[in-house]
Design a protein around this nucleic acid. Structure first.
Lengths: 96, 96
DNA sequence: GTTTAGTATTACTATATGTTCAAATGCTCA
DNA sequence: TGAGCATTTGAACATATAGTAATACTAAAC
């Protein structure tokens, strides 16, 4: 597998932002809750044990960085993992 | 490839710490300087354009989290990427 | 059409942590 | 001891997190 390592400054900045999105336990707990499939905010609150305001805030950060996506449905908003590589990333970091 | 997604709280905490280690542009610039091969602190300072104190502090963080390793040699200390998966990780995040 | 209940986001505050820079200190070898 | 290389310290500034409370949104009941 061909690997790149001459990253530009812009790429480095973007990478830092993405890594930062994954760098909080509260956000990783939300991802853990979402790996099996999409869930609404209330379900995420139950699964994670975090407070409502906190979940909402962290979901916004995850969404802004393309880690999760959102689908409104009636009163609820269903969030899901945006990309398969997120799980792969977690597995790689967890092993090392 | 078999993927895990029932991470324990402890695993999540550790993952967050590792992601955080990669979440600063200054640290990623240091890694970029090290990808071609090991370098001493002075060389890293030249390559990155960061100040000495800063490089030293960020190297310590990277070392504490197992991202780089250190080999003293005379007056100098040579740092290198500790693990091949670091570059793989950067490639994965850069693409997405 | 207005109200009401359920659902989710936003504002605000206190606290904590991280980054950078300048200066001082530590370490190693000649 | 002195020079070169690297780390540590301390202060200023910036950013992030968690919690409480208030606000916004949506759909259905009346």
């Amino acid at each position: 597998m061909e690997k790149k390592y001459n990253f530009t400054d812009v790429e480095i900045k973007d990478m830092a932002i993405r890594f930062k999105a994954m760098s909080e336990p509260s956000r990783l707990k939300i991802l853990r809750a979402l790996f099996p499939g999409e869930k609404c905010v209330t379900e995420i609150i139950e699964k994670t044990g975090l407070l409502q305001a906190n979940v909402s805030k962290q979901l916004k950060i995850l969404q802004r960085n393309g880690v999760v996506s959102c689908r409104p449905s009636g009163l609820q908003r269903f969030y899901k993992i945006a990309d398969n590589s997120i799980l792969e990333l977690c597995n790689m970091v967890c092993k090392s």
